[in-house]
Design a protein around this nucleic acid. Structure first.
Length: 143
DNA sequence: GCCAACGTTGGC
DNA sequence: GCCAACGTTGGC
């Protein structure tokens, strides 16, 4: 199982909306960047990801699970663009802000810090654990 | 609202 | 194939 991070502008698609949909799956549509798309192609059902709010919040809000492997993005006529489906699994007890992430030397290599514009990115297992700790969630929620 | 970083486009 | 121009993203 691999870990990921999905970025969203809260004004466009928020964690609250994702959570309200649970346990239903929702297309992670709209990605128009090759690197982000390739990351989604590498995902497998059961993989976990963080749901990050960009712009005003700039914080990791919750955990999602990949439901389906990459398939054509229904919001594009261009077959190059694919996406996975995800569902909300659990909110973090406390959101972890970008400022906290940047302040923690254990997270200095995170793609969120290094490649701030990449909207779908991998998370290392060690980074996943540190974020859960900062969120006050010592145990990974069971599938 | 500004601007840096970065991706894409198109002329040559 | 190079690079300037331009558009977008996202932090501040």
């Amino acid at each position: 199982m691999q870990y990921w991070l999905f970025k969203s502008e809260p004004d466009v698609w928020s964690w609250q909306q994702q959570l309200a949909k649970a346990p239903e799956c929702e297309e992670w549509s709209g990605v128009r960047n090759y690197q982000a798309r390739n990351n989604m192609r590498a995902m497998r059902p059961g993989d976990r990801g963080f749901f990050y709010h960009s712009n005003r919040d700039r914080a990791i809000m919750g955990i999602v699970e990949v439901c389906n492997p990459a398939h054509p993005d229904s919001t594009s006529d261009d077959p190059r663009w694919e996406c996975v489906d995800v569902r909300a699994v659990a909110a973090l007890p406390r959101p972890v802000t970008l400022a906290e992430i940047k302040a923690d030397p254990r997270l200095s290599e995170m793609a969120l810090v290094r490649m701030s514009r990449l909207s779908v990115q991998p998370v290392r297992p060690g980074e996943w654990a540190v974020i859960l700790e900062l969120a006050g969630m010592p145990r990974d929620p069971a599938p």
